[in-house]
Structures are given as structure tokens and as C-alpha cells.
């Protein structure tokens, strides 16, 4: 049996918001250590990997591994009904046909209970081994979201170029070009505002801007985002959770 209670429903709301435009159907795999999701978008270009660790829950119990096949659009309709500050509890039997979603207001005696039908989903799993990356950038997630949105208005591709001194985000479109250059710096007072650039080898990669626009929907989960890049390889975009992470792996574009 699964019983997981969040101190606030806001975390689950943000997670669903962050992934629902990339994937429609996915298995939530529940183990004693927490909840994981791996899912690939329909175009097979973007992969999400989610870990909501046991410590993200106020109370968590999962005796046997349980798979919840969830339609995220339906789940989102229910999850939006809770207030962000409500307790959120997910309950499922060992071989469940549905999952119970319970919201409890902390001040009033109001309990809202919903049941979501589960689906039997086939899922291919992609084996992602630990990769060696040539460059790692950590920056404020809101800044990355703004750069993505701004440059996406010019072109359907977004180029990321990393040199020793800086990282350049660049787009080249029909009516014009644009780029944003950031240098590494340390903000002592607000560490999350810092920009950190670690580069072993210079990087020049191009990605579909629409996929990065989906990735930055994770912005509300974390103050900062870490981008890991390797030549001619998928990039890793990571938003850290209080215990766990939401990672996006995005295949690049390049000439043969």
C-alpha cells in the first residue's frame, strides 16, 4: 500500500505543471525510497526524469513497489482543486485501479477527496548512464526562463555556446538575430543569484527552442537550474527539489 502525505500540495502542483506539456501519460513508480517517473515526449526528443524522495513527504509509506499509470491532464484537473497550502495525501492499494487524492485544509475542518482512474501504460525505459559533461552552468532558473522565452520569439532553434569566460545563448531567425551573454559571478548575499560556469571543453550546441520552452516550466520548482552539456550529446537540465530532482534530457540538433 502507498500512503504519501505532503505538507503542502504546492510541490505536486508544480511538478505536474512542469511536466504535463512535455508528456501526457506516465507511470509514477512508487518504492520505499519515494516516487520516480521516467517519460519521453511524443517526438522522442525530450526525456523527463523525476525523483520525489521520501523526505519530500511529511509521512511516507510504501510497502511494495506500486506503479501508478497516470494521465497527467486528468491528474492536473484534480490537483488544481486543492489549495497550495493544503496537506495532500496520495493513497493507493498494492495493485490499484485508482489513486485517492485527499486535500486537507490546515485551518478549517475541510477534507476534499478525489479518486483518479489509473491506466495500464507500456513504457520503454531508456538507460541513461552517468555521462561526462564538457561544461556545467548553474544559474537562476528565472533568468534562464526569460532568456529562453525572449530568444524563442526570433527562431525555433536556440544555440548555447560556452567558452572559458562566458555562456552565450543565441538565436538566428528570419527577421533578425539575438543573443544574451552571461559571465560567471558570485553573489555572496544571495547565492541562488550566482552564475557558475565550469568548462572543460568549449561547447557549441543547438536545441529546439520549443523543447527548452517546455523545460523552463520547471522554473517554479527551484531558484536555480543546472545545465550540463557535452559535444554532440543530449543536454541535462536539472531543477533540484527539497529531496530529489526534476531532470530533462534534451537531444541536440546537429549536422551529420
Amino acid at each position: 500500500m502507498l500512503e504519501g502525505k505532503f505538507e503542502e500540495s504546492s510541490l505536486m502542483k508544480k511538478v505536474v505543471d512542469a511536466i504535463k506539456d512535455s508528456v501526457k501519460l506516465c507511470n509514477f513508480n512508487c518504492t520505499e525510497h519515494g516516487v520516480t517517473v521516467q517519460a519521453v515526449d511524443d517526438s522522442r526528443v525530450l526525456l523527463i526524469s523525476l525523483l520525489i524522495g521520501e523526505a519530500s513527504f511529511e509521512e511516507y509509506r510504501c510497502d511494495r513497489n506500486i506503479t501508478l499509470g497516470i494521465d497527467l491532464e486528468s491528474f492536473n484537473k484534480i490537483i488544481k482543486n486543492g489549495n497550495s497550502s493544503d496537506f495532500l495525501t496520495l493513497i493507493a492499494e498494492d495493485s490499484p485501479d485508482n489513486v485517492l487524492i485527499i486535500f486537507e485544509d490546515k485551518k478549517k475542518d475541510r477534507v476534499s477527496e478525489y479518486s483518479l482512474k489509473l491506466m495500464d501504460l507500456d513504457s520503454d525505459f531508456l538507460q541513461i548512464d552517468d555521462m561526462e559533461f564538457d561544461a556545467t552552468i548553474t544559474m537562476p532558473s528565472s533568468e534562464f526562463a526569460k532568456i529562453t522565452r525572449d530568444l524563442k520569439t526570433l527562431s525555433e532553434s536556440l544555440q548555447i555556446i560556452v567558452t572559458k569566460e562566458n555562456v552565450k545563448f543565441s538565436s538566428d531567425g528570419d527577421f533578425g538575430t539575438g543573443n544574451v551573454v552571461l559571465k560567471g559571478f558570485v553573489d555572496m548575499d544571495k547565492p541562488d543569484e550566482s552564475i557558475k560556469i565550469d568548462m572543460a571543453r568549449p561547447i557549441n550546441l543547438t536545441f529546439g527552442a520549443k523543447y527548452i520552452a517546455d523545460i523552463v516550466k520547471g522554473t517554479s520548482l527551484s531558484e536555480s537550474v543546472t545545465i550540463k552539456l557535452a559535444d554532440k550529446s543530449p543536454a541535462l537540465f536539472e531543477y533540484k527539489l527539497p529531496s530529489g530532482f526534476l531532470r530533462f534530457y534534451l537531444a541536440p540538433k546537429f549536422d551529420e
Binding site: R44, V45, L47, G208, P252
Partner: peptide, 14 residues
């Protein structure tokens, strides 16, 4: 032309 790669070109399906 520049081509969009698929993840399966990089990772093994299990």
C-alpha cells in the same frame, strides 16, 4: 541542413 536528433540515438532502450 541541421537535424534534430532523437534520444534513442544516444541511449539504449531497456
Amino acid at each position: 541542413a541541421i537535424n534534430q536528433k532523437k534520444l534513442i540515438q544516444f541511449y539504449v532502450k531497456t
